[in-house]
Design a binder for these strands. Sequence first.
DNA 1: CATGAATGAGAATTCATTCAT
DNA 2: GATGAATGAATTCTCATTCAT
Lengths: 236, 236, 236, 236
Amino acid sequence: MRKRDTTAPANPTKVHCAVKPLNEVFQLTVNGRTIRSAEATQAAILDAATEEFSAHGFSGARVDSIAVRAKTNKRMLYHYFIDKAGLYLAVLERMFAEVLVAEKGLNLKSKEPEDGIRQLTLFIWNYVLEHPHFVRLVSTENKLKAEHLKKSEKIPHIHSHFVEELTDVLRRGIEKGVFRQDINPSMIHLTILAMSFYYISNKHTVAVSFGHDTSSPEATTAWGEHIVATILASLK
Amino acid sequence: MRKRDTTAPANPTKVHCAVKPLNEVFQLTVNGRTIRSAEATQAAILDAATEEFSAHGFSGARVDSIAVRAKTNKRMLYHYFIDKAGLYLAVLERMFAEVLVAEKGLNLKSKEPEDGIRQLTLFIWNYVLEHPHFVRLVSTENKLKAEHLKKSEKIPHIHSHFVEELTDVLRRGIEKGVFRQDINPSMIHLTILAMSFYYISNKHTVAVSFGHDTSSPEATTAWGEHIVATILASLK
Amino acid sequence: MRKRDTTAPANPTKVHCAVKPLNEVFQLTVNGRTIRSAEATQAAILDAATEEFSAHGFSGARVDSIAVRAKTNKRMLYHYFIDKAGLYLAVLERMFAEVLVAEKGLNLKSKEPEDGIRQLTLFIWNYVLEHPHFVRLVSTENKLKAEHLKKSEKIPHIHSHFVEELTDVLRRGIEKGVFRQDINPSMIHLTILAMSFYYISNKHTVAVSFGHDTSSPEATTAWGEHIVATILASLK
Amino acid sequence: MRKRDTTAPANPTKVHCAVKPLNEVFQLTVNGRTIRSAEATQAAILDAATEEFSAHGFSGARVDSIAVRAKTNKRMLYHYFIDKAGLYLAVLERMFAEVLVAEKGLNLKSKEPEDGIRQLTLFIWNYVLEHPHFVRLVSTENKLKAEHLKKSEKIPHIHSHFVEELTDVLRRGIEKGVFRQDINPSMIHLTILAMSFYYISNKHTVAVSFGHDTSSPEATTAWGEHIVATILASLK
DNA sequence: CATGAATGAGAATTCATTCAT
DNA sequence: GATGAATGAATTCTCATTCAT
């Protein structure tokens, strides 16, 4: 159970790395030393850590595995991120920062209310669909009672912008008379998130009850339209 | 760093379960001595394991911790469940079996369509609300790609009964003319699950975006009503 | 490595014995209790222990496994033999006692010297061939520095009878003038044992260097004749 | 009962090996500090493991004990050799490699046939006498049905060279008319091995039947001469 | 006599982390 | 900055043995 791979190498002295590390292939070397910027190394580590934490959770993630994936030395993880928890937090922080950046691509000011809701909903759904790591890491973080998140000083109020945008669109829809009056924007937001996240985070059990592949473009498009329809119906 | 938060619960036998833990039911004592009982021990282990796996996930769960919580010897876990994975699977199987039992308490045959939908929805929401272990373990299992679930021969198609009930109610509503015609029951079911599960499984991050306590009776009742209203609106 | 079999049972409550124990099938029962003589139980345990110790050595042998093989309860082993070491010693003692019994079937008094040597040699070879447990247990005991043997009060000078017989036959051969005069009977005895035991105890590595199956009747008969020829040649 | 005799040797680095332990060769110290060296550590581990497996067999050997003897950390065993079985195999492989190296010191081409047989026989006897680990490990491996050996890709046909040499000497003896014609070289080889191995591997039970110390130089020399005499007599 | 349940003391294996160059 | 070697503290799992009926 604890063992991940048990293939004994023929030559025990070469346990560490059978194939030449990719960074030796692609990176420049001077006097036999690899030239690599600190940023590149850190980014590689974060990418690898995102994969690993997302796939196995915090406890299940292996520091060794991250180092191998990042094609760097394990010592570097500690150099840059102090310990496993520090690395995990860095992954979270980068991820939420990316959400904020993505949000800026969304401008609903000039949209009609119903179209605005549609765009906002599909934006979230598509983001979730394209960033399964995000979904899984948020799920992981919830299992840890969001204690890492709470410790972070960097991670801002991630959804505030969304809620503001949503509140604005809803207000305009109410004024226009196309939405009912007693709408709670937070609940609408949460509904969109729930329908989006659950489909991704529980896709394996969903597949069982759904009975067919839930990852196909047809299925995901249909689910996106279903979310939009459900949200719009609930606003009438 | 490797040491996990080991805040042992004050009363490890108090399992947050709708049904009374089996060990309290079966465990007999005479003159202060515990009567040995395989059933009682197994149930105690399963209760403890449910707690532990639910709280920490598969990798994060500690076999030692489970033994302590179950007030038994670590050796017994292996005696009855072979290994950590076997114990985990047994926990899942018992949990899904309990769902099936609970389902039987739901009879919608004689209900008006709209009321039937309401009852079905609230049933799921309340079950999820009262069985957070269930939510967390399903979440854990999804992270493990549901591979344990797939290996199990026992775990049946857990939601099939729900979907059948739902399908029947929807059909009657369509015939009566109160629901629209092109309804996909699976999607409705999934929507209910998504809204119910997400609120529980992601409650820590939800709390951040929601800005207030999401566990209060007021909050949970409101969310239940919101799910019902959303579902009903989407059926019109 | 430490795991012998890891097939998780479908129903953990029935781990202990899936198939009905043979003693329940063959043994008489009265009022649901198995009637079994103490001797029968002890013999069954000794048989099982002989198998197990012979196959896996002292450390490698499993008390559980012996109980299962003996189709009895593990507690019985301790009842009759105190502990694992006691059981092991009992196995050794019975085995050496059997050798003594077998020896009595050999009467060389009336044989011509050369024929006597032949018979004696083939007797040892055949005994070894038909009692591989004996070979393996002697080998096991040597690995343990024969410390159990030395502790035993029962185990007599096991080969003395053989050596006496051998000495007598050799003396007659020398007197008759068919054997050389400076023969050391112990060395001859040892040579017979060496050639017999090694072929059996090291049969797996022998097979590699020999390049063909060493267990076939042809191969074992040929080896027996080879031992005889070698011994006789060395006596001339 | 489970506690094994843990009489640690006074000087664990003193391996009873013809060649000086590699760690004594490679291990360097500066200012009392040990220079880290993967080679040295691996060699030290292999030396210690050879001792331990040889003394206690596979199951009886203790990984902890090996680490202590090797004056290294238990973790390193797993780092270099993956698991206990891997370490055991590495021990076997190194041991057989050493046999091959030793073989090269034997040149019988220019020897008279009878002298060649004598030298070959004494070579094997002396090697076995000086490498009791080898004998015990081969014995251990046979108890494990040589399954580790079979898995190894490295371990070559260890005796092939011997058999070739032997075949050549025998051929020359036959041509010269000093040996009989119908000789099976493999059987002669096996006879030498049997007489050599058995004396060492079963020395404790041999001592009982022999009645005196079998390890004294006189006794071992006499046995060597006995093997030579027996083999030569069988060739006439 | 017989037996299922229970257990403490290991034993193998794994992990995050630090050392020393 | 970069890296292979090393490590101590768990963590899972096993085993001989005893309890209590």
